[in-house]
Simulated assay, not measured.
Amino acid sequence: MKEINFDEEHRSCIDKILNESWETFKRQFVWQTIMSEARNEAAFQFCFASIIKEIGNRYVKSDEAFFVDLETKIEVGADIISKYHDYNISKWKFIDITCGFKVGDNIKYKCAIELKCPIAGNTKHTAFPHTMYRIYRDLMYLEIESKNSLDDISEGRFYLMTNDVHYTNKPAYAEKAKTDSTYKPLGLLDPLNSESRINSTEKGEVCYHPAKEGGQIRKIKLDNSYEINWEKAKIQGKQEIENWYFLEIKIPQKSE
């Protein structure tokens, strides 16, 4: 007879919680049981956080609590800022969602989550290259947070959902990189479905143009390469069927 063992590590539980939460979030969005009207990033983040909280509560032990917070403000120490001095790291960083297990005030395990939702046709939709820069910057921060255990963070997750197909098949700076070797393409291309066969989220340094004329080029450094696997779903919009695209990137956990 097989013995049941529910004494799982927090790391394993977080993995199950977020996998189920992401699948639930996507399914409910596609079925339009959530977010059928309001479509903005803050609303998406709140909805996703609510699902994480509901599912996470199923995994707590009697002496534990599962927590979910929005817009967590963390301080980046001077030593980290100095270490990444070429990459304009800020002293303060707001994380879209944090979740994990705690006993009293003692954090047992904590995950940092960034969820980005660039929406085509939104009047507040920023330029494609700038949004791609923000995405790469979020990935860099998630690496820094988990690698250095900032604010007790052990791992990170990055999620993106969009109805703009350009994020799946078009890198920013593709043309600029041909004429200026300073720049590399910034993209989230699926190498199996992209004509260029470029996985442009390989580790290394990429550059973004200066904030102001004559300013310094903004740099981003990724310590890891990431596998890109987009998912696609059709959703009935107000006037026509829309294609939506979903992406999850897992940031490596800190070494024990």
Rank of each mutant, 00 (worst) to 15 (best):
E3M: 15
E9A: 05
H10I: 00
D15G: 05
E20P: 01
T24P: 06
K26I: 15
Q28K: 12
W31T: 09
A38C: 08
N40V: 12
A42D: 14
Q45C: 10
F46M: 14
F48H: 04
A49G: 11
A49R: 02
I55N: 03
G56V: 03
S62M: 09
D63I: 08
A65S: 13
F66N: 00
F66I: 02
E71G: 00
T72F: 09
K73G: 09
K83Q: 13
N88Y: 14
W92A: 14
F94N: 14
I95A: 04
D96F: 03
D96N: 07
G104K: 09
D105K: 15
I107R: 08
K108A: 02
I113G: 13
E114V: 01
P118I: 11
P118H: 10
P118L: 11
G121T: 00
T131K: 08
Y141D: 01
L142S: 00
I144G: 03
E145R: 08
L150K: 12
F158G: 07
V165R: 05
V165L: 13
V165T: 09
H166G: 05
H166Q: 14
Y167M: 03
T168Q: 10
P171C: 05
P171R: 01
A174D: 13
E175R: 12
E175M: 13
K178T: 12
P185A: 01
L186V: 12
L189F: 11
L189C: 14
S194E: 13
V206Q: 04
C207E: 01
H209S: 11
H209N: 11
G214M: 08
G215F: 08
R218G: 05
I220P: 02
L222Q: 04
Y226W: 00
I228Q: 06
N229G: 09
E231S: 15
E231A: 14
E231R: 13
A233Y: 13
A233G: 09
K238Y: 12
E242V: 00
Y245T: 00
Y245N: 01
I251M: 01
K254E: 11
S255F: 09
E256R: 11
